[in-house]
Design a protein around this nucleic acid. Structure first.
Lengths: 157, 157
DNA sequence: TCGATACGTCAACCAGGTTGTCGTAACATG
DNA sequence: CATGTTACGACAACCTGGTTGACGTATCGA
């Protein structure tokens, strides 16, 4: 085995960072500014039905307070609409605006283009092999990308 | 192409996180507590000759102040020794203690074991293929793992 | 009906960075 | 040499993105 385990880990991180940075830049170019992955996660979860603060908190694995701040941003930027729940006076129901849905579509497209650009350079099979290997290892997309404290002792509280 | 680009990105992140979390836990088990990747980076850079604050800051891509805090932790934990520079009164020279060197060795070993465990599960060629693909794409280990603000607009200031 | 539970929010805090300022040491140059 | 320029290291203050704890209120269930 030629490559050290640490190098492998850093390559994985580097790969993600390359995609994330390029995707972020591309989204900004297309008018979606200041978007971080957590925003995409949140929008996706809302679309999938997690449309209250507590539910989003559970889904995203962050605190309710963090959800309030995040959704506050998304609302201010026009991606999310908030309305009262008729049936439960405590709840505030979140939903995606047209702009929010457009962001999700654009994001998907952008990342597919980036993946295709990789495929052009090293071959589609190679790119697929990377995803297959990780999927075979049971790696699941971390819903829970706690930016701070990656390596900081406890990983899942 | 079956897998979306976004999924691929998340798999890469998930792969890194899986290694990093397992490595962190394993290191903690072996008595190296509260260690984050940046600490390993810093130790490695010191060993490679970046033995002053300013030099480390350049090497790690973070501010001098952040270096001071980081090295302060490493010194307090006994991984790094600090002494005055005879020839330049401003400088403080960093060096690795025995414990610091032991941490680096242990870390390397731990991550190699994790890689081997992956290889047992999906085959060494598959694991190697992942590294090769990323390396072929010119992915470089990010020296510069700014935990905060991954996706936050500017990636490299 | 009334206690237990869940929701949403606020204020306070925390970690890990950055920026700006400063004193001081070294260096270059006229 | 004398001195302006540059580099180093440290401090304080601040920023960001999260957490925790307390609280008021609404709902539910026995």
């Amino acid at each position: 085995m030629t490559r050290s385990g640490a190098d492998l880990a850093l390559l994985l991180l580097g790969g993600f960072r390359a995609l994330a940075d390029a995707g972020s830049a591309e989204l900004a170019d297309r008018g979606y500014d200041k978007i971080r992955p957590i925003h995409d996660f949140a929008l996706r979860s809302i679309l999938a039905g997690a449309d209250t603060t507590a539910e989003l908190a559970r889904e995203l694995g962050i605190s309710k307070q963090a959800v309030i701040k995040t959704v506050g941003f998304l609302e201010a930027e026009g991606y999310v609409a908030v309305e009262a729940d008729e049936r439960d006076g405590r709840r505030r129901l979140y939903s995606l605006t047209d702009r929010g849905q457009a962001l999700l579509r654009t994001g998907e497209q952008v990342f597919n283009e980036l993946r295709d650009r990789w495929a052009q350079r090293i071959g589609a099979e190679q790119v697929e092999a990377v995803g297959d290997a990780l999927a075979d290892l049971g790696i699941r997309a971390p819903t829970h990308l706690d930016a701070a404290g990656w390596f900081s002792g406890s990983s899942s509280p």
